[in-house]
Design a protein around this nucleic acid. Sequence first.
DNA 1: AAGCGTGTGAACAATATGTGAAATTTCCAT
DNA 2: ATGGAAATTTCACATATTGTTCACACGCTT
Lengths: 226, 226
Amino acid sequence: MSKLLIVDDEQRIRSMIHKYAEFEGHTCKEAEDGMEAIKQCQTNTFDLIIMDVMMPNLDGFSACKKIKEEQDVPVIMLSARGEEYDKIHGFEIGVDDYVVKPFSPKELMMRIQAVLKRVQTVKPQDSSVFRYNALKVDFSARLVYIENERIEMTPKEYALLAYFIKNKDIALSREQLIQDVWGYDFIGDDRTLDTHIKLLRKCLREYSVMIVTVRGMGYRFETAIK
Amino acid sequence: MSKLLIVDDEQRIRSMIHKYAEFEGHTCKEAEDGMEAIKQCQTNTFDLIIMDVMMPNLDGFSACKKIKEEQDVPVIMLSARGEEYDKIHGFEIGVDDYVVKPFSPKELMMRIQAVLKRVQTVKPQDSSVFRYNALKVDFSARLVYIENERIEMTPKEYALLAYFIKNKDIALSREQLIQDVWGYDFIGDDRTLDTHIKLLRKCLREYSVMIVTVRGMGYRFETAIK
DNA sequence: AAGCGTGTGAACAATATGTGAAATTTCCAT
DNA sequence: ATGGAAATTTCACATATTGTTCACACGCTT
């Protein structure tokens, strides 16, 4: 069950793929040209992109290249028969597979499965990365990104965020936070935690709303916000 | 070891699944149509639902859809051979797996294990949740919902509700409530408790009737209403 | 209808949290 | 070691939210 982005200027094609992919248990979003695809990729995280080569505004190759510059996501390209040049060009910029129009839905689904499987085995679910829309936290690199822009964080801010992510969607008491992020022996001012929450919120920008105040108790890091 | 709900109009099928599932270490409840399944889900929390498509009163898909609206529980659908439409329709509304009748018990058990495993790896910690019809209290997130709408509550309101739920269907004296929710040393006005009961009732909307006044004594939170 | 217990709205009191700035500590390069 | 920058903490105060009181309305029960 993966999250796919379907990019094609023909509504009919999009719907067809969408339907079949959903039947296979995937969730899909659509975009009707390369520009829109790029935009979608900046606010969503997809497991796979299925993209037509020929599109108005921005063609598939340019869009693919742009997207691949920002994140490592597998791409399946769709194109009209006999465009040999396309195929070569495509693999050069890292297209993962190539399906020639017209294709049977079943064939496309098989290709999708194959690509997803290949990708998953190559990098076995690196849970060392947390993603929420354009917010990305790479725990192994200790780096935080928003829209691919690196966010500078102090050790405390990062520790607090990491703890929140580890305990997302759970109401955490002030005591628990202090104890687990600062250490059992911290004897400090009441306002210290608030201050760090404030600083972390500043770092998180539009994602600051994910830190929800639970009055009389503490805070909760929510991943159900839209 | 999970809690399953088996929904099928045929007693014979229910028993068969029940027996095998119990042998595998699960505990089961049964329902003989969609309506009953929905009702069961409102007062119980299941780890997995096994449901027939064809049933009197309310078919499997409608029931599944309704249940999925209220909670996120995995569903395995059972159906007669050759109903391809069913399969597509099922995946659309989020059915987790699909077993065609007649099936071997062993196959079903394997599917059950597979779905449970998949679900458990996705969300490891099962939060403690109280449900009563469309009223839902998630204690770990410290959130209250009615019909999936989040209800804002002040700390006192929430504490009072939590205490009521912990002691549901028990008449609680005013003294006991004050002592346990406020703390042994609270010396306050008689009307303070009433006021908070009033506020909590307002939060609970149509479920306010669950707080029953026990005249001359205190209150009782009833789960046998409606 | 009287009397007691409960419901209710509004005013007010108490608390909890947010915030900026300054003080203090820690860290690091020299 | 030491100066300076960065990080952390403190603190005073602003703001927001919640809790309590109280007067009176309401409604059972006898």
